[in-house]
Simulated scan of single mutants.
Amino acid sequence: MSAANGRFAAVFFDLDGTLVSERTGVREARTSVGARLIELGIYPKPASAFADTIEMVIGGIMEDNDWQWPLWLHAEEWMKRSLAVEEIEVSEDEFAELNRVYRDERSDRAEAIHGWPEALAAARGHGPVGLITNFNDGPMQRQKIRGAGLDGQFDGVYISGEVGVWKPEPGIFLHAAEDLGVDPRECVHIGNNIQSDIEGALSAGMTAVLVEEDDRPRPDGLNGEVAWCEDLLEVASWLS
């Protein structure tokens, strides 16, 4: 793999799966909601059963929306629907507490992926560093960034739920470049998803770098316009 050709006006990163891992955090955070319901004395089943209900509710919504996560589907919405399925009534304060438990547990379990300091330091050698991430709930995503220890690391944070455009649509990439005052054709986006990160960045005129953290072979269909790195340390080397 050759190094970056010249300097970039800005370097953008994806978050989930690229800089932050949540391999078990989401399920555990949902289970923690069930545990809190048990503590409140209003749920007779195991905590994991409420996590199952949440996943069933979300799965039904996703199926109704062609397996695309709708922008309106925040934690509060699937929480409300899951409680209704279980026929559980809670007060406004209890509902707020359940959402707080979920947010805190999920952000606490988010872990920055090995090599992130080196990758971000190398990116800083080019210019501004931005984050472009798909998530409908901006405050929760920002809490996750803080929980992973990445707060303050970016010159701009662009969350689909706040921008109103999801990757791979080029609009969110173009918005990020415009906000930082750079030409998207002089930028690079680094991510782990071929469709949302790689195809999206290319559609906006950016250079794209695919990061594969799981020792999988190079995916089919990558052409010479896309760099491929095995991990963030290799990203740092490519950017240096």
Rank of each mutant, 00 (worst) to 15 (best):
A201L: 12
V211H: 05
D183F: 00
S91Y: 04
L40V: 07
H74P: 00
G171P: 04
E230P: 00
V26P: 00
P139R: 09
F12S: 00
R100F: 01
T207W: 03
P168K: 14
V235Y: 10
P217A: 12
I132M: 08
N192I: 07
S48Q: 15
E230F: 01
A236E: 15
T53R: 06
R142Y: 07
A201Q: 06
I198C: 06
E22V: 11
G200D: 05
S160T: 01
V26R: 10
G161H: 02
W116S: 05
H189D: 13
P170G: 06
P139C: 13
L174M: 10
K80L: 15
P70S: 02
V188R: 00
L222Q: 09
G6K: 02
G224S: 15
K167W: 04
A123P: 08
G181W: 11
L83N: 09
G60V: 04
L40G: 09
Q141E: 12
E89I: 06
W67M: 14
E92M: 05
G221W: 14
I88P: 03
G161N: 05
I172W: 07
G156Y: 08
M56L: 15
W238Q: 13
F50E: 10
P117W: 13
G156T: 04
P170V: 08
D215S: 15
D155Q: 05
F154V: 04
A204S: 02
A29G: 03
A9N: 01
R27W: 15
A204W: 00
R185Y: 01
E28Y: 06
A4N: 00
